[in-house]
Write a protein that binds this DNA or RNA. Structure first.
Lengths: 107, 107
DNA sequence: TCCTTATATAAGCATTTTCTTATATATTGT
DNA sequence: ACAATATATAAGAAAATGCTTATATAAGGA
């Protein structure tokens, strides 16, 4: 891999909150409202972290009504495969909002 | 691995100059004067980068007279093993100083 | 259409990072 | 002991990062 691409992906992963985001997504799709609850930071802060991971090609998104569900990209670079393998999964759903516990959960 | 240790090692590796330092050390020991030449930054800047890698447990050092030789630690965490495997080696010696081309090389 | 909800973007601020120059420390050679 | 060389540390400036609050956008329901 190119050194600059390695740098981009490492920078995207090198933050405790973003590591937790990745840890959550190891169990499947997660919506933004979950992350706010899990990380204890504001919703815009979560959006900004997710954007950084997306720009590094690590995650992708899917629109579900008003909500947006984020998940790990299937074809990770070998670098990210190695990193993700070391991140312990986190229970992805701690919140009480409808996106997770209501009828529309993940179609 | 613990999320906070992962963060520490990712942060240490997530910089283009430090990636190049690691790339050089894949070929063996390197002394500081080499790095100054290779990276094109000042000697104190190189020292600071090396300190960060050392504090993350990724590299170690050996004193050789006035010089100091840095190398990768033998027992890397599984995280760093995966990352290092993706970093292309760089020819470690570009400079013309005695530490590399003189008689005292690596003793 | 209007209101509510979920998410994204913008702007501003505090903290952290990474460089620089100047100086300190340690080793070698005279 | 003194001078020269290699590296480390200190201090300060500039840039990047990560948060906040305020606002914009988009979708769903009354």
């Amino acid at each position: 891999m190119e050194h600059t691409l390695i740098e981009k992906q490492l920078k995207a992963a090198a933050d405790l909150n973003r590591i937790k985001l990745l840890a959550c997504m190891k169990n499947g799709e997660v919506c933004v409202c979950d992350f706010v609850d899990i990380l204890g930071i504001s919703q815009p802060a979560v959006s900004q972290h997710l954007r950084k991971l997306k720009e590094a090609g690590i995650i992708t998104e899917r629109k579900v009504g008003t909500w947006k569900h984020y998940r790990l990209v299937e074809e990770q670079t070998p670098l990210m495969q190695g990193i993700l393998a070391q991140i312990q999964p986190l229970n992805r759903c701690n919140c009480d909002t409808d996106c997770c516990h209501g009828g529309n959960e993940h179609e």
